[in-house]
Design a protein around this nucleic acid. Structure first.
Lengths: 197, 197
DNA sequence: ATTTTATTGTAGCACCCGCTAAACAAATGT
DNA sequence: ACATTTGTTTAGCGGGTGCTACAATAAAAT
């Protein structure tokens, strides 16, 4: 057991609660008062545990990527690129429409546009989105070397198209689309899939 | 000339300035102080002219739909649905990448997620997005009756797919994508276009 | 010239923002 | 028992938020 007085709340549960708030209301739309009230602690405890609002968001974001957004790297492990993308979209819809948490993707809802004080958060989310796109691109590059995708396909272009639809799904989810509707969107999106040979 | 002391600033120019700020920083990220400073007036003048922050945003939004976002209804006037969609995406890219104003679409950047105090703005933008989708859907329904699109195509589904890509383009633009990259995305998006007959 | 109407400038409202100092409480180490 | 370490509590900081009362100003109407 550590030295001093033991913490009276669970760090992970607190992070989960913070994640939900940031997810639903965005970085700017989530106040410290809302965070501390939802977690059930008071402000100094939050600061002692997480640093400040920005650091708390970053830790919540890391938690987001490890848990709800883990469907993405997992989907890319599918044996074929086509099945990877199908699983990617399937996982995205399942996450984005999960009634246990807000609709949409934190990488999009967190801070698309923001005031000057939240610029760094905005940029960080932008980088994370670029990271997701890069992961998809690398998967397609591998698919090309494996003959799974035609060699005349530009992996970067295809990846950018796929994640563009992905971010679009997040916007649609925020607008109240249903799961069935998003599935239809994905079906349309994949009709252009380049057949091998 | 009206009765009292004449207004010392131009309403339309002020609205344009407000629009740019809301567009770049979102509704929540734009403070009254930033607005009045950018317009060059002080707060009571703004309130006398526009009501309050919410009303100002709504008027800026109306201006946005009439000017920068006018490409959408205009594109739908093209003789064929295919050319309408091509022009729609072309216009979107041109707007979303215009160096004279922020990257992205106000309907997406304005308030995707927000705090409780901006809920009504969020919902209003959501309704506007749904309105855009409905306009595209109606154009496709017309195309089906004209034989321009196969009758087995679901106009609502296709419209939802198209605007999903559209909102995705806005997110990509906010992430620093180039015009050429967005054009490639659109090219991929349209490979699935249902051929007539 | 005076009254009327509308806009502008000054000043400040109540409230919320992110954040922190200082005292208190609960555990461990010696 | 006592000091040390750490978390919690209370209280409040400076500054920003959206917004408004009030007086000064500039035009038209009489």
């Amino acid at each position: 057991m550590p030295r001093g007085r033991p913490r009276q709340f669970d760090l992970d549960r607190a992070l989960d609660t913070a994640l939900l708030l940031f997810w639903r209301h965005g970085y700017e739309g989530t106040s410290l008062a809302a965070l501390t009230e939802a977690i059930g602690i008071n402000v100094p405890s939050l600061y002692a545990a997480f640093g400040n609002k920005e650091a708390l968001f970053e830790k919540a974001l890391a938690r987001y990527l490890q848990k709800p957004a883990a469907y993405l790297p997992k989907a890319l492990q599918e044996p074929t690129s086509r099945r990877a993308v199908e699983k990617l979209f399937g996982g995205a819809i399942q996450m984005v429409m999960n009634p246990h948490h807000p609709d949409g993707c934190l990488l999009v809802q967190g801070a698309l546009a923001s005031g000057p004080s939240s610029e760094s958060i905005r940029q960080q989310l932008s980088r994370r989105r670029a990271g997701a796109e890069a992961a998809v691109r690398r998967r397609f590059e591998r698919a090309i070397t494996e003959g799974d995708l035609p060699s005349n396909v530009d992996a970067a272009q295809l990846a950018r198209y796929i994640v563009t639809v992905l971010w679009g799904l997040s916007v649609q989810a925020a607008g109240g689309a249903t799961r069935a509707q998003l599935k239809e969107v994905v079906e349309w999106a994949l009709r252009c899939w380049p057949e091998s040979v």
